Computed example of a mutant assay.
Amino acid sequence: MAESHIDLGVVTAPSGVLVLGMASWIDHWPQLGGTLSERARASASIGGGHVHDWMCEMVAVRAAGDRPLTVRAGTAKSPLDGGPTIATLEIDLGIPWVRTAGNEPIILGDLPVDRCGMVLGDALALDSWTGDGHPSTDGLADVTYWGAHAEAAHRQFGGELIPGRGNQVRGWLDLPLDDAKSLGDALGDWTGDEQGRGVMVAVDEHNDFHSFNRASRTHPLLIGAIEVADCPVLGINWDSGDHSMRHRGERPFGQVYPVTLQPDRTGRTTMRWTIPPYAPGHDGPE
């Protein structure tokens, strides 16, 4: 299957350690006995590798700490709608390649595609990551609503179409937290017909997890560029339908994909995550 390539931007790793990990669990590492950066640094000190504890997974590697690190994606057609989806993720680590016999790739391990997305960034910065459910870090929140009675709700409550969410999701961005909660309660209590049916409502407090999801909505590959602890970080999302067809079940069902180190054309080291093409009949659990 032919690939095309897209530049996704840059990340930095001032700590000298870069992490690709599951967004669902980035902020759970301290509960398992050691911060993310401590576990990542230990892995990177022996050449890098896969770190897995309970539901938390990441790959950690050494990277140049004094320059931006370019990130690119090779894409292939999604089996869901034919749109682009990630086939390879390549990160220039900014350090010289240590030659192996025949320049064969060095296998670091494998990772599943987290249904909540992946995070790529500096290990120390990610110690500050605020995950799903974390209270608002700036006192603001977003309110959205959708469903069969959304048009009727719009006539009563208002709300703008939310970029990247199609023509069905309306709401308000960057509201003071108390106002957002009050509005969310009002929408939740509202009924649009005599059967008492209303709309689906979400009140998303501003944290890093929500910020990367919000930033990814309008990107063709659902990439969300944000800053965490003053470091540029990339969040990598997947369309929920594409994830269901290709990646559901994740590690318990063997849906994991190799992460390697290999040389680029200039003799520097690249980290590469390779997701094989969709194969009907091999797309997850029945």
Results as ranks from 00 to 15, higher is better:
T75D: 03
G235A: 07
R155N: 12
L69S: 03
A13T: 04
G284E: 01
G192P: 01
A186V: 08
S78W: 04
E104M: 14
V119P: 03
A23C: 08
R170P: 01
V119E: 06
V201W: 10
T144S: 11
G83Y: 11
M58D: 10
V228D: 00
A123G: 02
V169M: 09
R39C: 01
P220E: 10
Q262C: 10
W29L: 00
R115F: 13
P135H: 02
S136N: 08
T274I: 14
V201T: 14
A125R: 01
V203Q: 03
T274G: 03
L140H: 04
A125S: 06
I46R: 15
G74E: 05
M22G: 13
S211P: 01
P14K: 06
A141H: 02
L234E: 02
G47K: 12
C56A: 15
S4V: 11
V59Y: 06
A153Q: 03
G117N: 07
T269L: 03
A125D: 02
D264A: 06
E90M: 13
A153G: 03
N103F: 09
A44R: 10
D179Y: 10
Q168N: 13
H243V: 12
L173V: 00
G198H: 08
G241Q: 09
L161K: 15
W25P: 01
A186M: 06
A60M: 06
G9Y: 04
D127P: 03
R99S: 10
C231K: 12
D27R: 06
R214G: 07
V61N: 05
C56H: 14
S24Y: 08
L222S: 10
D185Y: 04
H247Y: 15
T144Q: 12
I236A: 02
M22D: 15
